[in-house]
Design a protein around this nucleic acid. Structure first.
Lengths: 206, 206
DNA sequence: GAACTATCGCAACTCGAAGTTGCGTTTGCA
DNA sequence: TGCAAACGCAACTTCGAGTTGCGATAGTTC
């Protein structure tokens, strides 16, 4: 006479409305707060449960590990505003792209995200998240380059990924250390990179 | 009748020879192995003790925290080869600087170091370590720039720190994700940056 | 609006790794 | 040769991640 009552260990999401939605929202909000207060390393799931006024088990049933929770929390906002920038000029677009990146990485959440990614880069899910975000960003940026080429501001042969890395890379170090990134620095970087791409493309070096 | 036998909780290093030296060396070696095998997050002090055939307490008495141990292990090798590069040309010097940086960051220890720095950047000692290393690197690089200016390859007004960031930054992202950094990429970066600095310096933009 | 069950709350767990303590033993060094 | 610095060992504390079992609540379906 076996009682075969299915007891799902993990919340599956067949009941998305009402209470469940409230729980998810308040947990993610509390997670964001905890992340910006404590950073990833000192992020405590129990503290999130307290903030969200929710049982710790409820959290673990929906997000099996701390990393899952943080990743879920970061996913939406980070992937959201990949709306294409379009200011009308290459310089403007690059500056705007850079500004947005710095704005993202400059917030406590952004820095925490970078930290998490670093600390957990061996974690396949985190690595996959990084790949997804990067792919989205590179794809969006390809449009910027395409328009610049159409305007004659760039050679058609430019490597858009390299261009993106070259404007974002130099400021990443400062962002990672929590240092400010002044607007003048962003402008210098963009100007030098643009000049460099033009000069390197026009005369075939040497 | 108080017995005032001083029992120092932490090893102070008044006895640097013989056994102590052997202990320090084998622990640091074991720590390096463990770091490259497990990364910083999964780095277990007890495992280091086993590898080094040393008591766990011995480790803790000399390096009070896991971070201290890893930092000590990284300090020597990372700060070591800051011998000035001098190939005779700016392009060569930049390439060599970039190559060395990539070589450092490409090893398992290097990646682990980057990861540790990220994860523990709130830790004052780690932050200080980063500042020290960066200061040393920037100082060494200033010589490179000075010689290039003397040769007339750069304007005297260049910001050497910016130049360093602009060659190292773009490849850092790949290094952090454990991706390869092909030589062709390094050359592209250097060429574009050099061209950019020259072009941006000569005509005062606009 | 009644029943079915997904989801939640609660309390008490296990587990693993960091870091500690006390004491006896070895060994560098004066 | 002797004293204290440094080590070995074993048992301990602490803390946070993740688990388990069961009863209570509340979406959803008919």
């Amino acid at each position: 006479m076996e009682r075969v009552t299915k007891r799902p260990a993990v919340t599956v999401g067949t009941r998305p409305g009402g209470r469940s939605e409230r729980v998810v929202r308040s947990v993610l909000k509390a997670a964001a707060e905890e992340l910006s207060l404590s950073g990833f390393t000192n992020f405590r799931v129990e503290e999130v449960a307290l903030r969200a006024a929710v049982a710790k088990t409820t959290i673990y049933r929906r997000w099996p590990t701390k990393t899952d929770l943080v990743a879920a929390m970061l996913h939406a906002p980070l992937i959201a505003d990949d709306a294409t920038v379009d200011t009308g000029s290459l310089r403007g677009d690059l500056l705007e792209t850079l500004r947005r990146g710095v704005a993202k990485g400059g917030t406590p959440e952004g820095r925490a995200a970078i930290r998490m990614v670093q600390a957990e880069i061996e974690n396949p899910e985190v690595a996959e998240l990084v790949r997804v975000l990067r792919r989205a960003r590179r794809k969006a940026f390809r449009e910027v380059v395409k328009r610049a080429v159409a305007r004659g501001e760039l050679a058609p042969t430019v490597d858009s990924n390299l261009l993106l890395d070259m404007i974002m890379g130099p400021v990443h170090g400062r962002m990672r250390l929590g240092e400010p990134v002044p607007a003048s620095l962003m402008e210098s970087v963009v100007d030098i990179v643009v000049a460099g791409f033009n000069a390197a493309a026009a005369p075939p070096r040497r």
